[in-house]
């Protein structure tokens, strides 16, 4: 017995909203990367090279094939600054350890 199409309308609407959310986030990420696809599965070397790319081009995903770096690149130095808080990295300790254990397989509980 065929399903009357009126019965499928709610599912169509739900699906449309899910698609809107997913494709919307995907589009924003693509745009935010400078119209490039996300990088994924990055190791320490990739992270370091992406930092170097930023120092060379001034944009997060910028690329250049210039053979010689600008003069300021020789002495470039990145400094991260933090503000004072007595509880740094102390929030949600159990939750973060559960998460790290779930992701890395190391269940380190003291």
């Amino acid at each position: 017995m065929p399903v009357p199409f009126e019965g499928l309308i709610p599912y169509t609407i739900m699906g449309a909203f899910f698609a809107l959310a997913g494709h919307g986030v995907g589009f924003i990420r693509y745009w935010d990367n400078g119209w490039k696809n996300d990088r994924y599965d990055l190791d320490a070397f990739d992270q370091k090279m992406m930092k170097r790319d930023f120092n060379l081009t001034g944009t997060v995903r910028g690329q250049t094939s210039e053979s010689v770096a600008p003069e300021h690149f020789k002495t470039i130095d990145e400094k991260t600054q933090r503000y004072y808080t007595p509880y740094r990295d102390q929030f949600f300790m159990l939750r973060e350890r559960m998460y790290k254990g779930y992701v890395t397989g190391n269940w380190e509980f003291q």
Partner: peptide, 22 residues
């Protein structure tokens, strides 16, 4: 500014290409 610059004989033009071209 660099208050402690390298000696002249250590100066070299650094590679300016980023990760994908490299």
């Amino acid at each position: 500014q660099d208050n402690n610059p390298l000696p002249k004989e250590f100066e070299v033009d650094e590679v300016g290409a980023t990760s994908a071209p490299l």
